[in-house]
Design a protein around this nucleic acid. Structure first.
Length: 406
DNA sequence: AGCACA
């Protein structure tokens, strides 16, 4: 194919450097924005700007993502020239080389919309993960689990990609805490916070993403779902409106509790800050939920010391217990109790639904009682459960952007 | 990709 012919059409004029090489990639130039990858974790916008200044391009704007960023140049000509420096050693930054490419169009859905899926049981396969989502979201198109290069063992997390933004957004809310092979999975946004992938690059390790033809999907009645049945219909720590604790992941061991407090002070009154030793994480509890929500959405990915923090809701045993108590009092009807998590086959007639009543939450039974009510007489319990959870969702949906559920 | 303290 004519890669080598098509790649040169955006070339610069003053190219004494030019010629040769570059027989690789670089398909379609997109305006004046370049992707820059393989960044050192300690680099922030300022550092990257300095690098470009030292390369003779002082007028760039830098948008940091996780380990990569986007550089906007004055015009596409400047960007083209800059791209020629791909692979060049960065002066003064120890063996680091420039890793550059054209940025993808920023508003593209062509790469789909991904979510992070964590806390996976090590034996979960990509096929299983895919099934879990395709059963509920028709636009699911990829599931990928990250494996340790050396051992081949699952690292316990992966990514699921949708073609539809709606599906991604719904999955962020609805799949939180769903059980898969006995574990409550954790859903979060992928690296960048926008909900869209922007600069998807194909580095060397473009592994075998799992892609399942539609007809091979597990039918609903063979789903791998673990349906938790608990004494109480609990809101999980993501959905509990009383939870005001922020979990801080990716925290450098250099950071002290006092420093962490300073970073999180602007968002509201802090009850306490805790950094357990050796865990690489921390906890910040606010006096109210709104402050915590703001902190999570505003500080997501913020660089502290030599790393970027990842924020999520913390777990608060106290609050959960309290809430359970309240709910218990509303509905003192101690039947239908199964002590621990147990396998309950999904409803035979289950189907994807836009109805909140069918959201599968941990400790929450579906509104369709057919699969588990063995006494035939449906009391009010399910309805109470459904309403409590639905209300929680409505509260969440009103004042939230997706990134606070990561 | 990590969830403590009571």
């Amino acid at each position: 194919m004519s890669f080598n012919q098509t790649q040169h059409y955006n070339v610069r004029q003053n190219s004494n450097t030019v010629a040769n090489t570059n027989s690789n990639n670089n398909p379609v130039p997109k305006g004046n924005v370049l992707y820059m990858g393989d960044l050192d974790l300690s680099w922030d916008e300022r550092v990257v700007s300095q690098i470009w200044a030292s390369l003779g391009e002082p007028n760039v704007s830098v948008k940091m993502m996780n380990r990569y960023c986007f550089i906007t140049f004055l015009d596409s000509l400047t960007a083209s020239n800059a791209l020629l420096k791909n692979g060049m050693l960065i002066p003064g930054y120890g063996g680091k080389r420039l890793k550059l490419n054209w940025a993808q169009a920023s508003s593209n859905a062509s790469n789909g919309y991904s979510i992070f899926v964590g806390d996976l049981s090590p034996n979960v396969t990509e096929a299983q993960l895919f099934d879990l989502f395709i059963n509920k979201y028709a636009s699911t198109d990829h599931a990928k689990i990250v494996y340790d290069q050396a051992t081949g063992v699952s690292r316990g997390y992966g990514f699921v990609r949708f073609n539809s933004l709606m599906d991604q957004q719904h999955a962020l809310l609805e799949m939180q805490g769903i059980f898969l092979n006995g574990r409550a999975i954790k859903i979060g946004m992928t690296g960048n916070k926008q909900g869209q992938l922007q600069g998807q690059q194909h580095q060397g390790q473009q592994q075998q993403d799992f892609k399942v033809p539609i007809q091979s999907n597990t039918p609903m009645n063979q789903s791998q779902f673990m349906y938790p049945v608990q004494q109480q219909p609990t809101l999980n720590h993501f959905t509990d409106p009383n939870n005001t604790t922020v979990f801080v992941g990716g925290l450098s061991s250099l950071v002290t509790e006092d420093e962490l407090r300073e970073y999180f002070k602007p968002f509201g009154t802090i009850v306490y800050v805790k950094i357990p030793v050796g865990k690489g994480c921390g906890f910040v509890q606010y006096i109210d939920r709104v402050s915590a929500e703001n902190a999570i959405s505003k500080m997501q990915g913020f660089p502290i010391a030599n790393s970027r923090i990842r924020l999520s809701w913390g777990r608060s045993a106290k609050q959960t217990a309290l809430l359970q108590q309240q709910l218990y009092q509303q509905q003192r009807q101690p039947q239908l109790v199964q002590q621990n998590y147990s396998y309950v086959p999904p409803p035979m007639n289950a189907k994807p639904s836009n109805n909140h009543n069918n959201y599968y939450l941990p400790g929450f039974q579906t509104a369709d009682a057919s699969s588990y009510s063995n006494d035939g007489d449906n009391n009010d319990q399910e309805n109470i459960n459904v309403n409590a959870t639905t209300n929680a969702f409505q509260r969440l949906e009103r004042g939230s952007n997706a990134s606070m559920f990561t």
